[in-house]
């Protein structure tokens, strides 16, 4: 195994072009586990830790350009207002030590359905900035996850950053695990209200081959809020609407039985989390009115 240590982003892109199978490593919280247990033996490891700009973010008018290696701990402390859903999700990642090392780029690179960031990214909306020596492109987050632990990156591309829409309304993130901290998701749910577009977006984790949005549930709720005039009146969401939303979220999942939980439980729990997080976000929206 060869260890590549590019000193700059351009060098990193060149190295990835030369060795398309090279495995990028930043925090190492996924990669090192895989290597230690011999689950993975890449010919080349591409160490991104010397590239400082990956650990920075820029806040624009409408978006945050979040460097791929910004650790979760800094997202929690520095971006709570701009990216509340992702900040909440970040707080559920493993332990403080891991949160000091791991970042969203790793979650996206691994593309595990259990990655904690994904539901928040899907709900908040945004795009992945992928770059290679051939150039840079933005991959909408909705198109990024292509299969179990597969993503839309080309072999020569690296994740430079994620472009995330700054929150225009309340966001929430909930995750079920069988322990009260430091636990991998049995299933997870993210929701974001977008009052600017009068839409609601969602994200589901660990309950399908890839992270997914609950499209039908979003459309139903968006329509119901619209028809009820609730964005303007800020009246409570009728229980029947919340219940239907929860049922549609549960129905959107395509979970399996595994050692962490049953498919039936995952569906059930997603419904409960959908109803509760809708309640929390809507209450906050009402309170801010």
């Amino acid at each position: 195994m060869e260890f590549l240590r590019p000193a700059s982003w351009q060098e990193a892109l060149a190295a990835k072009a030369e060795h398309p199978t090279a495995l990028p490593i930043a925090g190492g919280t996924d990669v090192m586990v895989e290597i230690n247990f011999d689950h993975r033996r890449p010919d080349h490891l591409l160490d991104l830790n010397r590239i400082g700009e990956l650990e920075e973010w820029e806040t624009g008018t409408d978006t945050v350009r979040l460097g791929a290696s910004v650790p979760y701990a800094r997202i929690m402390s520095g971006l709570r207002a701009e990216l509340p859903g992702l900040a909440l999700a970040s707080h559920t990642v493993a332990s403080p030590q891991i949160r000091n090392r791991g970042g969203v780029g790793g979650n996206l690179g691994t593309a595990s359905p259990a990655g904690d960031a994904h539901p928040a990214l899907l709900a908040g909306g945004g795009a992945v900035e992928a770059e290679s020596v051939r150039g840079s492109r933005l991959i909408p987050i909705d198109d990024f996850y292509t299969g179990v632990k597969r993503n839309a990156l080309a072999p020569d591309e690296l994740i430079r950053a994620v472009h995330l829409k700054k929150a225009t309304g309340p966001q929430q993130f909930s995750k079920v695990g069988t322990r009260n901290a430091m636990v991998i998701a049995v299933c997870a749910f993210g929701i974001a209200l977008h009052p600017d577009t009068r839409t609601v977006r969602t994200g589901i984790g660990s309950a399908a081959p890839t992270p997914i949005r609950a499209g039908t549930a979003e459309e139903f709720l968006t329509a119901a809020l619209d028809e009820g005039g609730l964005w303007d009146s800020r009246k409570p969401v009728p229980p029947a609407v919340a219940g239907q939303f929860a049922a549609l979220v549960a129905g959107a999942a395509n979970p399996i039985d595994d050692v962490r939980g049953t498919a039936a439980y995952r569906r059930h729990a997603l419904g409960v989390m959908a109803r509760r997080t809708l309640g929390w976000t809507w209450e906050q929206y009402r309170a801010e009115g």
């Binding site: 707080h91 559920t92 993130f173 995750k175 009260n180 409960v272």
Partner: peptide, 16 residues
Amino acid sequence: VRALPGGLSNTTHGEG
């Protein structure tokens, strides 16, 4: 949330 079932995973604020 640290004092609630689910802890940091933020699954309840007292509901249920």
